[in-house]
């Protein structure tokens, strides 16, 4: 058996005829997404998640209401709520999406129930897309339920409350969640072992939260010593009326750092909210580049990066999954 020890190779390589690429039927995709959603919505995970998001928002709000009289006086409470919450959801949403998507395909292959799906007139592409939509819906609905219920408490505790910022945070969190769901479902389709799929999920998390976060430090060290092609760029900035000289990394390094979906999620929030804390950060960044950010550091580009993380993984999976033995 080719596939029992790891990620499998193409069945195509020892196949007589080229494997046909399956078609997509929207009715099939809808039927699979609906079934998958029905299945998942009955799990404790879904209700646990909704409750978790609710507690998270209420917790942050409560803390703000308790300590934040000064913030309230400045009318910046929703800003702070968005800022603190996004710092937490940035780590938590990937974890949840990876857990939700982990077994999406690998689990069905392991138990054989994928044969129930594929005995019916669905194509393999339908199954992948249906699963992605179904799981994304579960995550989105739990976010909406959690945020929705919490809105009442937030409004009561904070008094003033900017609904546009709040919905902006919810919307971007959903897109961020779908990106990680796409990564999870796609990886899950590459193996029939849930153990390997689980390891792949852990790997993804480590890459973006371990490796990526240390990249900027690493690049910084390399640049200081001018090792290889690393170098620093000197710039002049202004903060609190004082001019200062700073050093920054080369442009392309920022591009690499910004490919991380978590980084993109953080920057894209400026697109939909007017949270001062985040805006300030952007202002500082602009100074580093002599007044205007390069296109790949602008918030609309971060939005494209998030879309890329939705489209690219599932595109690879759609191509690959048509070509394996189940």
């Amino acid at each position: 058996m080719s596939s029992e020890t790891g990620f499998e190779r193409d069945a195509e390589s020892d196949s007589a005829s080229p494997s046909p690429s399956s078609s997509v039927n929207l009715e099939s995709v809808r039927a699979i997404a609906k079934k998958d959603f029905q299945d998942a919505i009955r799990s404790w995970l879904f209700w646990g998640l909704s409750f978790f998001f609710f507690l998270l928002l209420v917790g942050v709000t409560g803390t703000l209401a308790y300590f934040g009289e000064d913030i309230a006086a400045e009318g910046a409470t929703t800003d702070m709520l968005v800022f603190f919450t996004s710092e937490i959801t940035r780590v938590v949403i990937p974890l949840i999406a990876l857990i939700l998507g982990w077994k999406a395909i690998a689990g069905e292959r392991e138990t054989g129930s994928i044969k129930i799906l594929l005995s019916l007139p669905h194509s393999r592409k339908d199954v992948l897309l249906g699963k992605l939509i179904g799981r994304s819906a579960v995550l989105s609905v739990s976010l909406i339920v959690g945020f929705g219920l919490a809105a009442v408490v937030v409004a009561a505790l904070l008094g003033a409350f900017d609904i546009v910022d709040y919905i902006g945070l919810l919307g971007m969190s959903i897109i961020y969640g779908v990106a990680y769901t796409s990564i999870a479902v796609s990886l899950s389709s590459l193996t029939k072992s849930t153990t390997i799929a689980g390891a792949a999920m852990a790997g993804v998390f480590l890459v973006f939260y371990g490796v990526w976060n240390t990249l900027s430090t690493m690049f910084g060290l390399l640049a200081e010593r001018e090792i290889l092609f690393f170098d620093t760029v000197t710039y002049t900035g202004e903060f609190d009326g004082q001019e200062f000289q700073g050093e920054r990394l080369q442009d392309w390094v920022y591009f690499i750092l910004n490919i991380d979906p978590g980084e993109a999620y953080g920057s894209v929030l400026t697109l939909v909210t007017d949270v001062d804390a985040i805006e300030l950060q952007v202002e500082l960044n602009e100074q580093m580049f002599g007044g205007e950010l390069p296109f790949f550091l602008q918030d609309w580009f971060s939005f494209l990066i998030l879309l890329f993380w939705i489209v690219a993984p599932i595109a690879v999976a759609l191509y690959r999954f048509d070509r394996v033995d189940l």
């Binding site: 046909p20 799990s43 054989g112 129930s113 044969k115 594929l118 007139p121």
Partner: peptide, 30 residues
């Protein structure tokens, strides 16, 4: 394959049904 499967009924071997769905939901799906 899709057309074949639309005209074929299959009882696969060694397969688990969906734990959290009822018999009615399984059939509604099919």
């Amino acid at each position: 394959s899709r057309e074949i499967r639309s005209r074929t009924g299959v009882l696969p071997e060694g397969v688990e049904t969906y734990d959290r769905l009822t018999a009615r939901q399984h059939l509604e799906f099919a």
